[in-house]
């Protein structure tokens, strides 16, 4: 018996020692580089579970806001969040989620906890309202954007009219998935005006035969930009603001605003948010704070007139 025990223990010990050494090697390699800057928050597991204490909140109570925002806001919004936190130290932000607006609405419906929703089209916000996930009284139009066609930086592709999209020089066009990506449905609306798409709503239709083979569907407007930046598609339909968050793409053509619906970004507080008043205050801050306006202006977001 003694022998058995010993064997077992010895191999266990050896295993643990080796496993530890692996973990150590890996963590020192990273830890050294990190310079001790990033220690994982032990309580972060509950950070996003929406279990923040409900009930009456005194003005200075610590609040953590969870934002679901259209993918195109990925660079600009975190800067405004940091600005807000510097002025209101009691408010922090959970890792904001930047995805296709349609995906965010689906996730919200699926039970993902959030305090604020900002989408890139009225239609997606309408869906969230219909789902009962939005406090409609807080809804307002936050930003306007332009739809543009981008090409890879330094590319010699020229687009001087919308019809050039189906020109012989173009073999791949990146467009957002109209069901999840508002930029995709705006693009399809414009394509409808020149007969390349079958429905005027920009959704649920088909691309013209011959053009359909050129279309590369992407799951977010950022992925469209990325596909063009890597040269996997020659051109893509994105917002003006996407230019300023991606390297390696440049503007090729501004899609005429009268060929698609007005591009507005509605924002609203999520129904049942435990931090509704603070969330509302943040939305107001986004639209009125002069320093926030500077950030939006630099990233190419036009704060909506009303």
């Amino acid at each position: 018996m003694f022998q058995v025990k010993k064997e077992g223990k010895r191999s266990t010990g050896r295993f643990v020692a080796l496993l530890l050494s692996v973990v150590l090697i890996a963590s020192t390699a990273l830890g050294l580089a990190a310079c001790g800057g990033n220690t994982p928050a032990p309580d972060s597991g509950t950070a996003s579970s929406g279990s923040a204490s409900s009930g009456a909140e005194p003005a200075a109570a610590a609040v953590e806001l969870q934002i679901f925002a259209a993918n195109s806001l990925e660079r600009a919004l975190p800067e405004v969040q940091a600005l807000y936190t510097s002025e209101n130290p009691n408010v922090s932000f959970a890792d904001s989620q930047f995805k296709g607006s349609g995906d965010l609405v689906t996730e919200l419906q699926g039970g993902a906890p959030a305090d604020i929703l900002i989408t890139a089209s009225s239609a997606t916000m309408d869906t969230a309202v219909e789902n009962g996930n939005i406090d409609e009284a807080t809804r307002s139009n936050m930003f306007q954007n332009d739809l543009i066609i981008v090409k890879q930086a330094g590319s010699d592709v020229t687009i001087s009219a919308l019809t050039d999209v189906n020109g012989s020089a173009i073999s791949k066009v990146a467009i957002g998935d109209a069901d999840a990506v508002p930029a995709g449905s705006y693009a399809n609306q414009s394509l409808f005006t020149i007969g390349l798409y079958s429905t005027d709503s920009g959704k649920g239709g088909e691309y013209l035969e011959g053009f359909a083979d050129k279309v590369v569907i992407q799951s977010s407007v950022g992925n469209v930009a990325k596909t063009v930046a890597t040269g996997d598609a020659q051109i893509g339909f994105v917002y003006t603001s996407d230019l300023y968050r991606y390297d390696d793409i440049e503007q090729a053509f501004v899609v005429p605003a009268d060929t698609h619906k007005n591009i507005v970004y509605p924002g609203a507080v999520v129904a049942g948010s435990a931090n509704a008043s603070e969330a509302d205050r943040f939305l107001e801050f986004c639209l009125t704070n002069p320093d926030a306006l500077r950030i939006w202006a630099q990233y190419g977001f036009e704060v909506a007139a009303s």
Binding site: T240, A297, G300, F301, V303
Partner: peptide
């Protein structure tokens, strides 16, 4: 700073 957009708000 390069302001790519302004606001009419």
């Amino acid at each position: 700073a390069r302001n790519n957009k302004g606001t009419a708000r």
